[in-house]
Each structure stands twice: as structure tokens, then as C-alpha cells.
Nucleic acid binder design. Structure first.
Lengths: 222, 222
DNA sequence: ACCTGAACACCGTTCAAGT
DNA sequence: ACCTGAACACCGTTCAAGT
């Protein structure tokens, strides 16, 4: 797929919304601040103005990129025998997608809800229904789960990335643990005391433990 | 407190980190994109360069502004008789602070944790201890609660603001409800079905219901 | 219809020069 | 020590002009 780029030739690899969104995802994955219209134009072998023929603004581009990543992640969630297990798998799918693409988090939190958030809500909601939750509580149960899933996933992704090899997670936690131990004894007695535990915990496990608590709460209200 | 601003006079209202942070909070509250060094300099009756004598970067300024808002919010959390109730009040304090200053959310999610996040963790942690949670589970219980509190508060604040009079929350929800009802019937059966419930729910109540579920989970592990 | 790239109106940040 | 404001190296976005 070599690119034609000399003067008068007609490019056979025409720009399209999809190609622009894919290139934007690449740039965002290379670094939170990697997406600029100039960098995007360079990668697509065109000028910055060309992009505006297909996309209205950077904001719209970010939303579209987030939608694409989440849609692919949800497509890959395996089928489950029980609604409980299905909810756990959807949750993990979203958690890992945001962990791998931390910039996605900010897009999911927008109002009005972008396609991606609506998709997550719909998928979770169907399982809530399957769980036998009474009709009146459908919205509340689903939205509590979705808020937790997105909120905690965003929190996690902001802390450091499981999949980014350039940041050594263990080293970061070790340094943080040392920092915690040096905090003021009067102001931070608790934090100092648990500093050592910071290095042992597993974010994904804790995320799932929270999901299980919420599911237990939902089950108790049946 | 009129300001001296003529040529050679020495200003008696000298710049300071604190005055700069307070002005930054004002600008951020006036609009997510209201904080620029030029606008800040104008408000402080100086040039943009002067600010850099006191603050290293915009990033540091944002963190400092978030720390200040959270510190004030935590100071106002009333005392409680029981650890459960104390956790609920800290949670609501953070929820309302982020709701009133939505830009704070992004600052709390940074790594390494800013002062504000550390403060929330410390306050929650002490109550977890008071609850009688065994030492080994201190970190996990506290961090699960903190992730939920910050994560869901940020999610909520991004949706619309309880305290901002310029956005009518009820109107927004009504419009969203209509949008949901028009979604594709094949792709969004659940979302369409619960569209009406969107208008009745109370974000703060659901936030607290989630806290109670987590507290019940913690209690079950005692 | 689609693309090009210069131009506009901004940014955060730096720094020589002032007091 | 602290402040000033011009200057630098960028941005997102627009738009006349091309094919």
C-alpha cells in the first residue's frame, strides 16, 4: 500500500472519515498530545484543511475515535452463560480498552452521551433486564453500573498503563510507595501505614471486586 | 480593595501563588476554557510572564487550583458519629465540590496523585480503619471507595451541573429522553425502553446508593 | 466534489530588560 | 527579588484557489 504523492497524480487512497479516524487513533495512542491537525495532515499526506471536508472539528474527531475504539472492544466481548458473567465481561472489555487507549476515557464522559457510552449502557442494560431486575429499577441499576465501569476505568487508566512498555508500572509504584512513606506523619498517618500495600494490589482485580459488590447489591433488591 | 495600576507606583497587592490560584479558580469556574495566561494576567493587572515567577506551568496551576478546591470542601465536611456516616459525608463533599467545579475532576485523576487525591484517600482510609477492616484489606477497601467517589463524581459532573443556572438540567434531560426514544429499535431496545426513567432519577441519590453497596461489601468482609 | 496550503486569531512559554 | 511585555513556536480553524 505505497502512497502516491507526486504533484498531479490522482491519489487512489482518497481521504475518508474512516481513514482519518484511524490515523487519529494511531496518533493518540502514540501520545496523549500527539493529535494535531498538522500531524494528522502530514500522516495522511495532505493539508490540514482537507480534513475539515470530512470532519467538522477536533472535538468531533475525538468523539469518533473513542466511538470506534469502544465499538471494536465490545465486538470482542465473548458470549456468556449468565447475565452476571456477561456484565463482568463487558466491564472488563471497557476497562481494558480504556487502559490501552487512556484518551478514550475523556470522550466517554461527555454530555450528551456519545455513541460509545450509549452502546455500553445498552449492553449492560440488556443484562440487567435478563437478571430479572424489576422494570422500575432498570435505569438506576444500569446507570450505576455504567458510571462505575467508566468512572473507575478512567481513574485507572490515568494512573499508568498496563500495556505501555515505556512506563514500568512496578517502578512507578515502588517510587510512589517510597513517596507515601515520607509524607507528614501528622497529616497522613493512614496513607503512610498502607504505603507498602500499594505495591501489591491489582487494579483489575479491585475493579472486578467493585463490580461484584454492585451486582450483589442489585441481586439483594430483586 | 481597589487596585493600584498606574505606571511607576509599587503595587501593594503583590502577586503571590495564592492570589494567582484564586484568580485561576475564578476563571475556570466561568468556563472550562476560560483559563489562559493572558486572561489571568489581565485579571491580575500584569503580564503573562509575571505568573511564571510564581508558578512553573499551566499544569501545575491546574493541580494547585484543584487542590485548593478539594481542601476547602473537605474542611467543610461535618463530623459524624459513625465511620459509615463519615464516609458518606466525605463522599458527598467531594461529589458536590466536583459538581460545582467540574474542571476539578480531571486534576484528581492524575498520576502521581496530587495533594487533593491523597487527602481524600487519607480521610477515607481513617474511616475504613475505624470500621474495623483488617489491616491487610486497608489499602484495597480505601482505594476502591476513592476510585468510586472520584470516578462517579467526574462522570456526573461531565453530564450537566446541578448548580450552574445557565444550564437547565430538566430541559437537558427532557431533550435527551426524546433523543433516546428515537434511537434505532434494533440496536437500542433497552435504552429506548428506559428513556422515560432518565427524567426521574437523581444523580446524587444514585451516587450514594452505590456508596452504600460498597460499604455493605466492606462490612461483609469484616 | 474534493483537496491544497497560506493566513488568521489565538495559545503556553521564554527571556532580555526594567525596577 | 519581582515584574513587564515583546517574541517564539506552536495550535485549531477558515477560505480562496485549484483540480
Amino acid at each position: 500500500m505505497a502512497k502516491a504523492r507526486r504533484g498531479a497524480e490522482r491519489r487512489e487512497d482518497a481521504l475518508s472519515r474512516e481513514r482519518i479516524v484511524d490515523a487519529a487513533i494511531e496518533l493518540l495512542d502514540e501520545g496523549e498530545h500527539g493529535l494535531t491537525f498538522r500531524a494528522l495532515a502530514t500522516r495522511l499526506v495532505t493539508g490540514p484543511g482537507a480534513i475539515y471536508w470530512h470532519i467538522a472539528s477536533k472535538s468531533e474527531l475525538l468523539v469518533a475515535a473513542g466511538d470506534a475504539v469502544v465499538a471494536r472492544a465490545l465486538d470482542e466481548v465473548p458470549a456468556s452463560a449468565t447475565p452476571d458473567e456477561a456484565i463482568r465481561r463487558i466491564a472488563v472489555g471497557v476497562f481494558e480498552a480504556i487502559d490501552a487507549h487512556p484518551w478514550v476515557g475523556a470522550q466517554l464522559s461527555r454530555a450528551p452521551w456519545p455513541e460509545a457510552t450509549l452502546q455500553i449502557f445498552e449492553r449492560i442494560g440488556r443484562q440487567v433486564q435478563a437478571l430479572g431486575v424489576p422494570g422500575r429499577a432498570h435505569f438506576t441499576s444500569a446507570s450505576t453500573l455504567v458510571s462505575y465501569i467508566i468512572g473507575v476505568s478512567v481513574q485507572n487508566a490515568a494512573q499508568g498503563r498496563l500495556f505501555d512498555p515505556s512506563v514500568d508500572r512496578a517502578d512507578f509504584l515502588a517510587a510512589e510507595s517510597v513517596r507515601w512513606k515520607k509524607l507528614d506523619a501528622q497529616a497522613y498517618p493512614f496513607t503512610r501505614k498502607v504505603a507498602a500495600q500499594l505495591r501489591e494490589h491489582d487494579d483489575r482485580d479491585e475493579f472486578l471486586a467493585g463490580i461484584d459488590l454492585l451486582l450483589a447489591g442489585v441481586a439483594a433488591s430483586l
